[in-house]
Amino acid sequence: MDKRIDLFIAGIVVLFGCFVLVQSFGIRPTGPVVDKIGPRGFPVVIGTVFIVGGLAVMFGRLRNWSAETGNMIEPDGEPDEPGVPASGPQAWILMTLAFLYALSLTQLGYFIATPLFVGGALAVMRVRSAATLVGAAVVYTVITYLVFGTMMGVRLPLGPLAGLFGTAQ
């Protein structure tokens, strides 16, 4: 874990707490407030806990800053599998592809967007065999369509192929 990023995230928590606190004071009750805490009480406490908690994490990190040599320190979170190279960008690209898939599902339709996503994501995950890429993408798309679309009756968006497959549902 990079202690600089840990400190940065704690700073984000403090800023987020300030944002929540400011927004909380802008909450206007829509009717008569029947309880002492009111609709803004809980968010105010939440914002305060964010600020105090974030500052506590920052203080703890800064207190040990010089004692911990180098920027990489023992992780508080889930460590990567030891002995295997890890790549943050690989995960970020997969996240981006997942968002693109969700956003394009309605326009492209299930039969176009899904194999593109599965094939693309597998390529990002360093699957290099073309047969595996195409096979997995096609098999997944067909099976999930049969299970969700046909057996379970979920109306999956078909995009430009709606005319071709629309009657199948």
């Binding site: 889930e78 990567d80 599998e81 295997v84 190279p85 890890a86 790549s87 943050g88 690989q90 995960a91 997969l94 996240m95 990002v124 995950m125 360093r126």
Partner: peptide, 9 residues
Amino acid sequence: LFRQARQSF
């Protein structure tokens, strides 16, 4: 799943 995607093995 995103965390696991950091590594290929």
